[in-house]
Simulated assay, not measured.
Amino acid sequence: MAAQNSAGIQTLLDAEREASKIVQKAREFRTKRVREARDEAKNEIDAYRKSKEEEFKKFESEHTQGNKQAEDEADKEADDKIKEIQEAGKKSQTGVIVELLKAVFEVKPVAPSAA
């Protein structure tokens, strides 16, 4: 009977070791599958991010071009106005100097009024 119990115990221990090996393999498989799933998700996210960045760059380039044209036109307009102001200044420069000198040299004193 003791030999039979010993053999039964040994069979149970063997079965437990075998079950432990199966559980360990399942854990390894699960861990491997989780890593693979994480890597797949990361790759999908990277691909999605890349496509959205390209889409944004395309959108930005299409809309920036219109802004660039408007900016160039505004710069040209500003340059034209500056030239116009400079020309007007040159035309009336001598007259302004004469008036300033006249105001400085022809002093007309005025008595302060009693308030």
Rank of each mutant, 00 (worst) to 15 (best):
L12N: 05
E53R: 12
L101S: 05
Y48K: 06
V107E: 07
Q24K: 00
F105W: 15
R33M: 14
E44D: 11
A3F: 07
E106S: 15
A70G: 02
E36T: 05
Q24S: 03
E28P: 02
I45Q: 06
K91H: 09
F29Q: 08
A88T: 10
F29L: 04
P112S: 09
R49C: 11
E77R: 12
P109C: 15
A3L: 15
A26R: 07
L101D: 10
K57C: 14
R38F: 04
E40I: 02
N67P: 00
K32V: 02
K108T: 14
D79K: 13
E73N: 11
K32H: 02
L12D: 05
A41P: 01
E18F: 01
N5D: 15
F56C: 00
K58F: 03
P112Q: 08
K32M: 01
K102Y: 15
V110K: 15
N67M: 12
R38D: 13
I22E: 12
K50T: 13
D80E: 08
K68Y: 13
I22D: 05
F29C: 01
A47H: 08
Q65W: 08
E16P: 00
R38N: 13
E60S: 14
I45W: 04
K42N: 08
Q4V: 10
S61V: 00
R17P: 00
K50V: 03
Q93H: 10
R30P: 01
Q4E: 14
K102P: 04
R33I: 03
L101A: 09
S51G: 02
Q69K: 13
L100C: 13
R27C: 11
E36A: 00
F29K: 02
S20P: 00
G66D: 13
T64D: 07
E84L: 07
S61P: 01
E40D: 09
E40S: 02
E73D: 14
S113K: 12
A15S: 14
F59K: 12
K52Y: 07
K42M: 08
L13W: 04
E54I: 13
D46H: 04
R35D: 06
Q86I: 04
E55K: 02
A3M: 10
D75S: 09
E16I: 10
E87R: 03
